[in-house]
Design a protein around this nucleic acid. Sequence first.
DNA 1: CTGTTAGCGCGTTCAT
DNA 2: ATGAACGCGCTAACAG
Lengths: 345, 345
Amino acid sequence: MKKSSSSYNDAAPAQTRGAVTMATVGRMAGVSQVTVSRALSDPTKVSPDTLRRIRDAIEATGFVPNAIAGALASRKSQLITALVPSITNIVYSSLLHGFSDLIREHGYQMMVSETGFDPQQETDMIATHLARRPDGMLLTGIHHSPAARRMLIGAAIPVVEIWDITETPIDRCVGFSHAQIGLASADYALAQGHRHAATITACDARAQRRRDGFVRRFAAETGADIRAIDFPPGTATLGHGRQAMAQLLDQGFRGLVYCSSDQCAHGALIEARARGLDVPGDIAVIGFGDQDFAEHTLPPLTTVKVDRDAMGKAAATALLGRIGGQNDAPTTIDVGFQIVTRGSA
Amino acid sequence: MKKSSSSYNDAAPAQTRGAVTMATVGRMAGVSQVTVSRALSDPTKVSPDTLRRIRDAIEATGFVPNAIAGALASRKSQLITALVPSITNIVYSSLLHGFSDLIREHGYQMMVSETGFDPQQETDMIATHLARRPDGMLLTGIHHSPAARRMLIGAAIPVVEIWDITETPIDRCVGFSHAQIGLASADYALAQGHRHAATITACDARAQRRRDGFVRRFAAETGADIRAIDFPPGTATLGHGRQAMAQLLDQGFRGLVYCSSDQCAHGALIEARARGLDVPGDIAVIGFGDQDFAEHTLPPLTTVKVDRDAMGKAAATALLGRIGGQNDAPTTIDVGFQIVTRGSA
DNA sequence: CTGTTAGCGCGTTCAT
DNA sequence: ATGAACGCGCTAACAG
């Protein structure tokens, strides 16, 4: 550690020192503030000569336009905000990646916050986000508090809800049906001849709907009662999956295990193999997410793929379209899913 | 898909429709705009009776304060922006998680962008971020273009550089030495009796410095030449680690493999075991990151732990201190690292 | 405790 | 092609 130097910005309130404005630049270039504004927004509206002088002045002063003032005057913030349950979950961060890539290309920036799967926190964050007057907003999921809906509708900005699907979104929706994934997974398991099943599920309403879909279909066909292990709140990690599988195995379980994420599934796989069990002979595993490691586990993981990057981009496209005033695009887009058959089930 | 409904916000430019302002609320409550402002910023400065009326009016109108106008007037944006190489990399997203948690508690919001390990893009993003007049900024790494440094210093805002360390940061620095991690890893490997080594490294300057530290120390002690596999740009995934290990094994390599991430290391482990090799007998593996799955791999992964959540929080604390005008705190904080000894090496 | 007056730095309109 | 005037919605002094 080193003692603080006193050379950098001592006690200088941000933005106070040397506020270079368009007026400053204009003065130096011998033009008015408006001309500087024009030079920046549309260089063709300014004579080549003054343009050069303005650019020199900008260079000399290190002027950086004040987007806050610009947003206030134009009523356009060039800001899109996003709310996701968790930023450390690859599922959501890869969505944001695709989303932000596309909106940035269109001159927008992204502000993100985490809701931690908590509706109350989501409602609070919506309020703080709305205060920044975003030009659009991305929400995860389709269930929001009445207060949240009210605020969103009052704000009258384009909104896109993702990672789930409904025919009656607040504005637009890009996602897929979790229940159907559960059903399809059960169908697949049944087709493979499985007659015993268990579930390992994270504390997440959407994961639970996948699980419920799976259980409903599987139980209806086999009459079997299905053991369910539910995680307490917190990320569903490989370690938790491993523990859960250990628990099932200790109870003598043999059959197919339906996991709410590839992480858990991987853990389950590891535990089964660590005990010398045959996969998928003794124990079969289905995951969810098709993460990049899924094809490299031992054995490769059978899972459900949702194209997250494409979904993020589709959500961005829908939002940008709305911001651009396009109202004839579909309200709801179902991006679907796909069961990826590999060795584990 | 469903056709667009025309009930929501048709062609209404954001922010235009029904702009409820403090003046609106004040009118309804029978007070002036300033009083509304006071009621919101410090309720004790307003009589209980008018406070009630103001709150009723806010409730009735659904008023949401305009933070843009507030920021312009107060010269405080309550915004902290962050630049990370990649948001989908758990290493950085967990940092952001800890960081944003803490700044939010202090009333700040976070805007993030990805630089994709590209200095030019970082420079561009710094400019756009600065345009929003953030009250502080978080940067990943200590190497920035001259233009970037100039802009940052010109902006005169608190800046914290993380995930690396230097005695001469732009403002503050919270991190650790990558070279030392390489050296320490080599020392550990040597102490375990290893005399043959190879490296698997992602396309990331900091990962390369860890590798260089490792190679320098290991080669100096053994005189061995060390095979190096370097990934092309793109995320270093489990799959890539597996491929790299396959390549080494095909060349007949036996010994210790130093990987730039736990993901790669895990892939390497899987490949070695898939070939029936003994770990750590035939092949030993050291990772980096101590991700949550590291203790559950087969065998458990020996790796290097850096407390990312704590680093994020330390960075936030440093930044908040600077924003608060504290200048006597240390310029540089070394959070260190720790070799986590498990079964793989 | 409350109101008045002034900006904050820009975009927008209307002139020229 | 350029400028003057105005306003975006709020906070920051000062009065009273």
